[in-house]
Amino acid sequence: MNTDWCGEAAAVVTLTFDVDAETPILARGRRYAGHASTMSHQAYGPDVGLPRILDLLDDLDVPATFFVPGWVAEHRPGLAGSIVERGHEVAHHSYSHRPPTSMTFREERDDFARTLEVFSGQGIEITGYRAALWEATWRTAGLVAEYGLLYDSSLMGDDRPYRLPTEHGEIVELPVHWSLDDWEQYAYLPEPHVGSVIESPTKVLEMWCAELDGMRHYRSLFNLCAHPFLSGRPGRALALRRFVEYALACGDVRFARCRDVARAAAADPGLARRPHRAPEADPEIYPR
């Protein structure tokens, strides 16, 4: 098993935060802009949760990556820059937070390019991409390569980085998984329905520590996905802090920004290369 990409560490942790703000709700329908309570629930993320998380990262001296939709960066000028100033990475998370699987390829391309224009105008370097809701199409990775980005972080084909071939060249995939997403643990709204279970932060902390132990055993990438409007709330922020403290105390875990892991993975000659193509789905067996 080749693990040059992780160096001497037993596991690498990428703390990633999807700074979605209002976008995932507006993507369900612009009528929700009129729901004051719902919009305030989402605005809590950039307004309260994000500063709390940035302070937490400063206290613990660990780097992170923040996936920011272009709409959020455009409507909150200075937000992306404030993240970079703290030593963290800002990455592409669509413009509108509409999942690629809900769009035509032209719509997906336009949404992708519009985000890059926003960040270019703000002087923010973009190296990686994450699809909204992790709902990439088979064309998405090709867009990432075509626009010169290094990595994607939307797929689930491994628990270590891997090479992903596309028609526009090869990129690095930094895989994700639902078990390492705070949305599955904490997200709740009566309308639109985004989740219906609010778990105890104590349970979430236990689950993430157990997963990290497994990844230390198998020398994997612990790619945590958290959202400031969820994990930025007080009890959950403390659980996140305790997780980071646990990982640091292990002594064999390295924290890194996604772009740094992707660069190490791209330079690793032994990194696995996974095929990227849709399975054959016979319409006589699998009707639409």
Rank of each mutant, 00 (worst) to 15 (best):
D111L: 03
R52M: 06
F66D: 04
C225P: 01
E117Q: 13
R28V: 02
A237R: 07
I171Q: 00
E170N: 00
T202L: 14
P287K: 09
Y44F: 15
D158C: 10
W5M: 01
C225G: 07
M39K: 05
W138V: 13
D4I: 02
I198Q: 15
T38K: 09
E107G: 09
S196Y: 12
F255K: 09
R241H: 06
R236K: 11
F222H: 15
V13L: 13
D182W: 12
A11F: 07
G235W: 15
V13K: 06
A249G: 11
H93W: 02
A247E: 10
R254E: 13
S94P: 00
V62F: 13
A43Y: 10
L26Y: 04
L248F: 07
V176M: 10
A256G: 06
I198Y: 07
A249R: 12
S179F: 11
A27H: 04
G128S: 13
Y286K: 06
P24M: 13
D110L: 14
R139Y: 12
P69L: 07
V204G: 04
T137A: 12
S96E: 02
R163W: 00
A33W: 07
P283Q: 09
D59A: 14
D20F: 06
L116N: 08
R257T: 04
C6P: 00
G214W: 11
H88S: 07
Y32Q: 03
W183D: 02
T16C: 10
Y44S: 11
E107Q: 14
V261R: 05
H92Y: 02
H35E: 15
L174I: 02
G78A: 14
S196A: 15
L79A: 07
A33P: 01
L212D: 08
A73Q: 03
F66L: 13
E89A: 08
D252L: 09
R114P: 01
M156K: 03
L57T: 05
G270V: 01
L57I: 06
A237Y: 01
A141R: 00
R254V: 11
F243I: 15
D18C: 05
H92R: 03
R241Q: 14
L50A: 07
T3G: 02
V12G: 06
T16W: 03
L26K: 04
W138K: 04
T166V: 04
L155Y: 01
V68W: 01
S94K: 03
F255V: 11
G251E: 11
R114K: 15
G7D: 13
M39S: 07
S196W: 10
P77C: 13
Y95K: 02
R241D: 10
W183R: 05
V253D: 08
V204F: 10
K203I: 08
P228K: 11
D61T: 05
E280D: 14
P99I: 06
R130L: 03
R163S: 00
F229C: 11
A10S: 15
P165S: 09
A10C: 05
G251R: 06
G121A: 09
L26T: 11
H217P: 01
D268R: 01
R76Q: 12
P161T: 02
W134Q: 05
V90Q: 08
C250N: 04
L164K: 00
D252H: 08
S40N: 14
E199Q: 12
A9W: 03
T65F: 04
A141P: 00
